[in-house]
Design a protein around this nucleic acid. Structure first.
Length: 484
RNA sequence: GGCGAAGUGGCCGAGUGGUUAGGCAGAGGUCUGCAAAACCUUGUACAGCGGUUCGAGUCCGCUCUUCGCCUCCA
C-alpha cells in the first residue's frame, strides 16, 4: 500500500517517495509568536502532527523542523510597515524578545495539551541571522539580489518560475496592481526584501554587510530549512494563506541560491472559520486555545479538527464541538470496554478495519474516513461483546493493539488515561477509587433488597457530583465525566 | 479586478460516473427494577438551470452564493 500526498505544486495527488529511502525531511512554517495560539494554529499543527506520526508509523525516520518566528514580519512588504512583535512589545510595554519568549512558551503549552509532538528541531529566526546573511550574500553573488541604500531585494525577474506555486505568474498583472506613490528602492514593484535597514526606533536589529537592520520576512524559512534539512527537502507544510507570497518567495530565493528543487511535496492546510469567516488575530474573531481549554477537553478539539480533512475549511461552532465531544466519548468508552472485558470464546476479525484505516490514511491523510472506520469498528466490537460468547483473549488483544496504534499513536485521540492524571493526583485518585468501591457496594445491596429509592439516590447524587455509573452485564462501571 | 477553493440530509462532515460514508441530534424498539450505556430500526442529501452519458452528487457549460490570497485598508 503506498502513500499518496496532494502536492500543491502539481495540484494532484502524487505517490510519496522520499529523496533518500527510509528518511523523510519535513519543514513546517511555525508561528509568529506575538500572541496566544488560536484554533487556526491548532488545526495546522495537529494536521501536520498526524502527518509526521503516520510517516513514522510507516517506518520512515522523519526529521521534522518547525521554526519559531521571533522577529516580527512586517505587516506589509513595502518599505514602511509595522513589525508585529515590536507593536505587541509597545502595547505590553516590554522588550520584543520578552514578548517572543513569553508567547513561545505559551504556544508549546497549548500544543502539549493537544498532544502535538514537538518537532525534532525548532529553530528561532533570531538565532539564525548569520545563516540568513550568508544566503543573501549567495543571492547577490549569483545576480538574483541587489543592494540599494542598505536594503537588499530579490529580483523577481531574475527567477523565471516565480509565482508558480500560487499561480501568480503574470508579473505584468502583479505590477500593475502595485501601489502608486510608494517610495521604494525596488527596481520592480514585485521584488521582495531580503534585508531591511532599520530606523532608529526599530528595536530588533543586527549588523550586516549592508546596514544595521533585520532580515526580510521570507528568508528565515529558506535559511533554516537548508541548514537543517539540506537544499532539497521532501515535505514543506504551511497554511494556505502563505502560498503567496511567502512560499513562492521561499522557492525563488532557495532555488536561485542552490540551483536545486527546494521542496518536493508542498502541503497546505486550510483555514478554520467562524460562521464562515476566517479566524485571524487581526480580524479579532480568533478563538484562543487557552480560553477553549477551560471548557473543552483539548483532545476533543484535536478530534474535532481531525474529523475534517486538512485541506478543507473547518467551521467552528459550539454545536459542532458538542457533537465531537459525544463522538469521542463513544470511542473512549469502546476502548475502555474492550480493555475491561473478560475473555470469551468468540472470534473477532480486526484486519478489515485496520486495512481500511491504513487505506484512508494513505489517501492524503484522510483522517475523517479513518475516524469513520474507528466508529464502524466500535459498533462491530460492541455488537460482538453484547453476545453471550464475547470475544476471545486473542481477538481482544488484536483489537486493543489496533486501537492503540490507530487511535493513540497515529491520531493521538485515544490516550492511555483519559483523565490525564498527574503525579500528585494519583494518591487522591486511588482514594476516590476506594470510596467509589464502598458506595457501589452499598448501592448493590440496596438493589438486591429492591430499595430502589436508595440506589437511585446514590446514582443521581454521584451524577450530580460528575461521576457517572453504568450497570453493564459485567457489573457496575463508573467514570468521572470529563469536559462540559 | 487577478489567482485559487467551495456549496452534500436538522447540525458537523467524507465521497468524484453505477451498490451503506461516518458522527451528533430526532423518532420507534431490544436490554434494564427504572435509567444510562450498548445494540436494532428509521432520513427518496447532494445550490439552480442546461448539456454529455445506458446511467451524474460525481464530467462539461452557464447562473447564483460563500470563502482564502493578491489588491485596498496600512
Amino acid at each position: 500500500m503506498s502513500l499518496f500526498i496532494y502536492n500543491s505544486l502539481s495540484r494532484t495527488k502524487e505517490k510519496f517517495e522520499p529523496l533518500h529511502p527510509g528518511f523523510v525531511s519535513m519543514y513546517v512554517c511555525g508561528p509568529t509568536v506575538y500572541g496566544h495560539a488560536h484554533l487556526g494554529h491548532a488545526k495546522s499543527y495537529v494536521s501536520f502532527d498526524v502527518v509526521v506520526r503516520w510517516l513514522r508509523q510507516g517506518g520512515y525516520k522523519v526529521k521534522y523542523v518547525q521554526n519559531i518566528t521571533d522577529v516580527g514580519h512586517l505587516t506589509d512588504d513595502a518599505d514602511e510597515g509595522e513589525d508585529k512583535i515590536m507593536r505587541q512589545a509597545d502595547l505590553e510595554k516590554t522588550d520584543p524578545m520578552e514578548i517572543a519568549q513569553f508567547y513561545t512558551r505559551s504556544f508549546y503549552e497549548d500544543m502539549d495539551q493537544l498532544e502535538v509532538l514537538r518537532a525534532n528541531i525548532a529553530p528561532a529566526a533570531t538565532a539564525h541571522i548569520p545563516e540568513q546573511i550568508a544566503l543573501i550574500e549567495r543571492l547577490i553573488k549569483s545576480g538574483n539580489a541587489y543592494e540599494v541604500n542598505g536594503n537588499v531585494y530579490f529580483s523577481v525577474n531574475s527567477f523565471p518560475g516565480y509565482g508558480r506555486l500560487s499561480g501568480r505568474t503574470d508579473q505584468e498583472a502583479l505590477q500593475s496592481g502595485a501601489r502608486v506613490g510608494v517610495r521604494s528602492d525596488k527596481r520592480e514593484p514585485s521584488d521582495f526584501a531580503l534585508w531591511k535597514k532599520a530606523d532608529e526606533r526599530h528595536l530588533m536589529k543586527w549588523n550586516s554587510p549592508w546596514s544595521v537592520g533585520y532580515p526580510g520576512w521570507h528568508l528565515e524559512c529558506s535559511a533554516m530549512s537548508m541548514k537543517y534539512l539540506g537544499e532539497s527537502i521532501d515535505i514543506h507544510g504551511g497554511g494556505m494563506e502563505n502560498k503567496f507570497p511567502h512560499h513562492d518567495c521561499e522557492i525563488a530565493q532557495s532555488e536561485a541560491a542552490s540551483g536545486k528543487p527546494y521542496v518536493r511535496f508542498w502541503m497546505h492546510n486550510n483555514m478554520v472559520t467562524i460562521n464562515g469567516i476566517k479566524m485571524g488575530k487581526s480580524l479579532k474573531n480568533s478563538v484562543n486555545l487557552k480560553d477553549l481549554f477551560g471548557n473543552i477537553d483539548p483532545l476533543v478539539i484535536r478530534f474535532f479538527i481531525l474529523q475534517s480533512h486538512y485541506r478543507s475549511q473547518l467551521d467552528y461552532s459550539e454545536t459542532a464541538i458538542k457533537a465531537s465531544t459525544s463522538g469521542l466519548e463513544k470511542l473512549r468508552e469502546t476502548l475502555k470496554r474492550v480493555r475491561e472485558q473478560k475473555s470469551g470464546s468468540g472470534l473477532f476479525d480486526c484486519a478489515p478495519f485496520a486495512n481500511r484505516f491504513a487505506e484512508a490514511m494513505n489517501d492524503d491523510f484522510n483522517t475523517p474516513v479513518a475516524i469513520a472506520v474507528l466508529f464502524e469498528l466500535s459498533k462491530a466490537i460492541n455488537t460482538a461483546l453484547d453476545h453471550p460468547e464475547g470475544i476471545s483473549t486473542e481477538s481482544k488483544k488484536v483489537v486493543e493493539k489496533f486501537l492503540e496504534s490507530a487511535g493513540r499513536q497515529t491520531l493521538g485521540i485515544l490516550n492511555q488515561d483519559t483523565s490525564k492524571s498527574h503525579g500528585e493526583n494519583r494518591e487522591s485518585e486511588k482514594k476516590l477509587g476506594d470510596v467509589m468501591h464502598i458506595l457501589l457496594e452499598l448501592r448493590n445491596e440496596a438493589r438486591k433488597n429492591r430499595d430502589f429509592a436508595l440506589s437511585d439516590k446514590i446514582r443521581d447524587q454521584l451524577l450530580g457530583a460528575g461521576i457517572e455509573i453504568k450497570d453493564t452485564k459485567e457489573g457496575v462501571s463508573w467514570a468521572v465525566k470529563s469536559g462540559s
